[in-house]
Amino acid sequence: MTAKKKTKIIKTIKVDVDLCNGCRTCELICSAFHAVPRYSSNNPERSRIRVIRDPLRGVFIPVYAGQYTPAECTGRDKYIIDGKEYDECAFCRASCPSRGLFKEPDSGLPLKCDMCESDPSLAEPMCVQWCLPDALTYEEREVEVEDEAENEQEDVEIGLESLADKYGWQKILDTVARMSKKD
């Protein structure tokens, strides 16, 4: 890998938990945006942002889907903030075997927020656009980074890895072999 520097745009969604009303509009629109064809269906269970809601305790926390992880953490975290106790792993963004969060409901494949990457690109990610209470706001900034492997490659690898965790490498290889024959 080359260690060349290049500039990269860091896309940030700022989450102001205090402004969130727990409406789950972000979940709805994220799943609709990623439906094929776009917006043709919605299902919060497929969303790449999930709102942890415990309204009786005044808890609403939007959490974005981060990386897939094949193994759960050995330790767990539990936060208490302002006297409110949050569930184990509440703030973790990983699609992890210990929980159902951030997985496609039918295939179990991991979900990851892609910042609504699309062509032409959106002015702002959909969840931000549809969050009227402004709990979610979008920011871009430029930073210098070391050149990275292509994101796409990374996505493919993550997808495959999780499939392998589920079905075993042999089955994946067999399937790929069978499918490529069909073409």
Binding site: A35, Y39, S40, S41, N42, E45
Partner: peptide
């Protein structure tokens, strides 16, 4: 529930 709800005319709806 974890199923989809379908929309007839997606772009117009949004």
């Amino acid at each position: 529930g974890s199923k989809d709800v379908n929309i007839a005319n997606p772009e117009e709806t949004i």
